[in-house]
């Protein structure tokens, strides 16, 4: 799937050379997307907002959102997308890459969980439908992945009052790599 994203980037570059202009000067554009994430675990929702600049069929911006798949996380990423044609309704390709922030972790007498952020990356194809002069509906589908690390520490407990525990004698480090198919819909303004 990583190859697919590389291919998308390649498409962007190639289409960039024969593209006629949409904007003569960079202009702000933002978007809100919601999507469904399908993977080998239960399907979940993704919600994103992305803000950046649009110029000559290119868009580059910074996005953030909530990714509820498997372990709720907050991806913060760079988004680059490229329109393939120069028409009001047109397909586009996009790639995202950034950091996948996870919740802080938990701690009790026996067990301490530390969560460490991983990476978030996504890429896909979409279709932009113009609804008004500066409003468009985006439909997109693609491959999405996120990673994070969970470090869990355990203590051995003395099972008699005061029920104390030793120091953190056990630790488990787990690197999660979650791969999903994403379908999303959004508004671009």
């Amino acid at each position: 799937m990583k190859k697919v994203i590389v291919s998308l980037v390649f498409i962007m570059i190639c289409t960039g050379f024969n593209h006629t202009i949409a904007q003569e000067s960079p202009a702000y554009s933002g978007m809100f997307n919601v999507g469904i994430l399908y993977g080998s675990n239960k399907s979940k929702i993704q919600a994103q907002t992305i803000h950046g600049l649009q110029y000559r069929g290119w868009f580059a911006g910074v996005g953030g959102g909530i990714d509820d798949y498997f372990q709720q996380s907050i991806p913060i990423f760079l988004d680059v997308r490229k329109s393939i044609l120069n028409k009001p309704n047109m397909p586009f390709v996009y790639v995202d890459g950034g950091i996948n922030l996870v919740t802080k972790g938990t701690k009790d007498d026996w067990r301490k969980v530390e969560m460490k952020p991983g990476v978030f990356y996504e890429g896909g194809l979409g279709y932009k439908i113009a609804l008004a002069e500066k409003l468009a509906l985006n439909l997109a589908a693609g491959y999405s992945a996120k990673t994070y690390t969970q470090n869990t520490f355990f203590k051995r407990t003395i099972p008699t009052p005061p029920y104390f525990t030793e120091d953190w004698t056990h630790s488990n480090k787990e690197d999660f790599n979650l791969q999903r198919f994403v379908m999303k819909i959004g508004l671009q303004f």
Partner: peptide
Amino acid sequence: VVLLQGCFKDTVESEYRYT
């Protein structure tokens, strides 16, 4: 792609430290 959903594997690489 939804039909290929099963091809997307969520994996975990673990390093368990025991005493």
